[in-house]
Structure formats: structure tokens, C-alpha cells
Amino acid sequence: MGIILIGCLMIGCAREPEVKKQSLQGKNMIQLSTDGTAKTAETRQSVAEQAVAQIKQRGDIRDAVAVSTNKKLLLAYQVKQMARFRMKQIAKDIQQQLERLFPGHDVTTSSDLKLFWKTDELRGKIEKDRWSERKINREIDELKRLSEERT
């Protein structure tokens, strides 16, 4: 009986790393390992790339992710824990900085974690499925609406 029990436990342990790997899906939700932008043949993400590079240079930002089209730019960022006391000022600064950098674009920024996840998801989809400009525009509008919700 004891041997069976120990055997079962051993089998259980042996499979554990595999399960863990699956559940994490090899991806950290907060920290992104790539440069945080998507590249496709149809829609060049150079604006998003530049925006992410600029914002990541700031000392109070932990991570940023962006998507862009010819007219629109959506950037979501994560503020470092202790810098969150100055959240309002940081949000204002980043909005102004991006509007100055990309005057031709309709800039949307957000520090919300949900927006960060969604933008990252959208970035992945653009990269993988080669979405058209119109479809990305529509998705950006949808996320903008989500970021403006208050209640």
C-alpha cells in the first residue's frame, strides 16, 4: 500500500514541471521580453516601435507596449510601484510627449493593466495574422473606449 502511494506521488512529481510550463505558457504577463511592438508587412509598426523606445527610456516606467496605424497610436504602460504616487503627472507627461513626437497621430495612452494585456494581445495578433489597417483601427477604437470607461 505504502509503495503504491509513494509510487503515485513520484509519478505526480515527475509530471509537475511539464504542467507548470503549460500553465505559464512560457510568457510573463508583466515583463515582455521582446521590444514591445508588432511587425507586419501590411502595417508597419515603426511608430509604435519608436514610441515604446521613447517611453521605456523614462525611469518611472517598468514596461510599455504599443500598436499603431497610419492615423492612430495606442500605448499602454506599467508604472513602477513607488512612482505610482505621481501617476497623474506621469500620465500627462507621456500623453504630451507622444503628441509632440507624433503630431499626425491620434494618440491614446493608458496605465491600466487591462489595457496593457489587451494591447499586448492585439500586438501578437497583428504580428501573427497580418491584419489590415482598417481592422487594427477598429480594435484600437474599441480599446480606447474601454480605457475611457469609469464605472
Binding site: L146, S147, E149, T151
Partner: peptide, 14 residues
């Protein structure tokens, strides 16, 4: 609520 529904950090409070 944020992960599985369309709530943001702002709206997930309620």
C-alpha cells in the same frame, strides 16, 4: 474580473 471580463483596473473595483 480584469482577465476574464471586460473590466479595467478602474472599473473592476465595484
Amino acid at each position: 474580473y480584469m482577465y476574464f471580463f471586460d473590466f479595467t483596473e478602474q472599473t473592476a473595483g465595484n
